[in-house]
């Protein structure tokens, strides 16, 4: 006599109903999250897509709608974030290298720094504007409302993010790399400089690009640093007055005339396009980094 045991038991109706409902909720959540992007972009596009032209990129901000554009804020954003990156990237990378490779895990000093960086990353952006106002615009440094002040503030904002992502990239480099180099007689610094750092570059680059794109979209701290004015010329140096993309959009948006609101939307589309390209580069780099590691 043989006995058949069915392992395919049926779920009770109630259990399978709850399961189905839960699955629906999850799909809905992910649909809403992803749908938001398309909703935001499509509403900007339907309002201002027709306005996009090269003129928008070459004309300067103006209260005259036909001649208004985004050249000086685009160049201003490039200056501010470019200089901030030049400062924050090496500083952040060196800090990350020190913490991961030289400071020694678990001692008081490195724990303190770690805690400090984590919390610095969570400080609201607008607070960085306040330190800029107190110490850089006035106070000790007295740079005024210039590209230099803005770049200093944005660099402070980027620094913790770059440190955190670089540390992760450095941690992902297999210890055998260092050990191999040390066994061959390299000094620890040579092992780090010649082997660890180059292997960590794709990961660091990915994180840094995301930090840069966040910095480009940042508006709150520079609100306090005089970036909210129409500057109708490109910056020429650290001591130039400046404006940036997000705050020019903000400025246009606070004008009640509809034409200017459309202009604000057009500016947003330009800004989003820049950020999209940066994100795409970051994603491709990350793919390269993970493939390398898996080989």
């Amino acid at each position: 006599m043989s006995q058949t045991i069915s392992l395919k038991g049926r779920l009770s109706a109630r259990r399978s109903f709850i399961d189905g409902t839960f699955r629906l909720f999850l799909y809905l959540s992910i649909f809403i999250s992803l749908g938001m992007i398309f909703w935001i972009v499509s509403s900007l596009w339907s309002q201002a897509g027709w306005l996009l032209s090269w003129d928008l990129l070459t004309q300067y901000p103006s209260y005259d709608i036909d001649n208004a554009g985004f050249q000086s804020p685009l160049v201003g954003s490039l200056w501010v974030v470019g200089i901030a990156t030049l400062v924050a990237l090496p500083t952040g990378l060196l800090t990350a290298l020190y913490l991961e490779e030289f400071a020694g895990k678990g001692n008081k000093f490195s724990r303190l720094i770690e805690l400090n960086i984590q919390n610095l990353a969570g400080v609201p952006a607008v607070v960085f504007g306040l330190i800029g106002l107190a110490f850089i615009v006035r106070g000790f440094v007295k740079w005024g409302f210039t590209v230099g002040s803005a770049a200093a503030v944005i660099a402070m904002l980027m620094l913790p993010v770059i440190i955190i992502v670089s540390r992760e990239a450095i941690r992902a480099v297999p210890p055998s790399y260092r050990e191999g180099a040390l066994a061959l007689g390299a000094t620890p610094w040579q092992a780090v400089w010649r082997l660890v750092l180059p292997s960590a570059i794709p990961g660091t680059a990915t994180g840094s690009i995301l930090a840069v794109s966040r910095a480009i979209g940042e508006s709150a701290p520079l609100l306090l640093l005089g970036a909210l004015s129409f500057v109708t010329f490109n910056p020429t140096g650290l001591d130039s007055p400046f404006t940036i993309m997000p705050l020019t959009i903000f400025k246009y948006a606070s004008d009640s005339r509809e034409e200017f609101q459309i202009l604000a939307s057009a500016g947003s589309l330009i800004l989003m396009a820049v950020l999209f390209v940066l994100n795409l580069i970051a994603i491709i780099l990350r793919d390269i980094a993970t493939k390398k590691r898996n080989v």
């Binding site: 979209g217 948006a253 939307s265 947003s268 989003m272 994100n279």
Partner: peptide
Amino acid sequence: ILEILAGIPTVVLGLFGLY
């Protein structure tokens, strides 16, 4: 794609809220 959502500048989100 979620990362792109995370990267939308707050000024653009503000515009979306306002308009």
